[in-house]
Amino acid sequence: MSMLKRYAKAVGMSEEAWKRHANPWSVWTRFAAIPLMILAIWSRDWIGWWALVPVGLVVVWLALNPHAFPAVERPESWTAKGIYGERMWLRDRSLVAGDHRKVQRLLVVIGATGFGLLVYGLVMLEVWPTVFGATLITVGQLWRIDRLGQLYLAHHR
């Protein structure tokens, strides 16, 4: 079982949870959690160990998020198609062919680079790597959702 599948199982990503996670509110509020988490971690400079409280709240929200919104039975929005495509991809990686695999690998590199910059910026409390890292993560995720939405459209019956 892959790491992604283990993670999905660990956080209770049942079929119903995937349908709820496909709700655009779920997707966009997860994106909104990025600056909230950055602010929560950065707040250690102002409030010390109390920063663990807002960090914990964001972590709890991210765990609850895929279960918090009404289920999407028929994906019609861009985000819903992307999440349905993600579910298809997790079930059968062979659905992603040729050039799309190259793009998926590029998105992993973009995301990992962004994550590295973000961590560095947060540890050192430097604005530019924090903002640039968060931007790379966001762009990578948006592009990934788009690609997975294309996967959904290509294989939906």
Rank of each mutant, 00 (worst) to 15 (best):
W78T: 10
A22Q: 05
A33L: 05
P24L: 01
A33G: 05
A22T: 04
R74E: 15
H67P: 05
Y84R: 15
L39W: 11
V60C: 00
R44A: 13
F31T: 06
P35N: 01
A97N: 11
A71S: 08
P24Q: 05
G48P: 11
L52V: 10
V96K: 11
L57F: 06
L39S: 12
G98K: 12
V55Q: 06
G82V: 10
A71W: 05
V59Y: 09
W42I: 00
R91Q: 14
W78R: 13
K102D: 10
V58I: 14
P70T: 03
N23P: 01
V53Q: 01
P75Q: 07
A63S: 11
W25L: 15
V58W: 05
L62G: 06
T79Q: 15
I41A: 12
L62S: 05
W49I: 12
E73M: 12
N65K: 00
W49Q: 08
V53K: 01
H100S: 13
K102E: 11
G98W: 02
W61E: 02
A63E: 12
W50C: 09
I38W: 00
S43Q: 02
A22F: 03
A40K: 01
F31R: 03
D92R: 13
W25G: 13
R74F: 12
P70V: 11
T79C: 13
V27A: 00
L52H: 08
S77T: 08
R93W: 07
P75M: 10
Y84S: 15
R93G: 08
A97D: 11
V72L: 10
E76M: 12
K81I: 03
W28S: 08
I83E: 10
V59R: 09
W46G: 00
E86H: 14
V55A: 08
H100G: 09
I38Y: 03
N65W: 01
L90H: 09
E76S: 11
W25S: 13
W78K: 07
T79Y: 14
P66V: 09
A51N: 08
K81A: 12
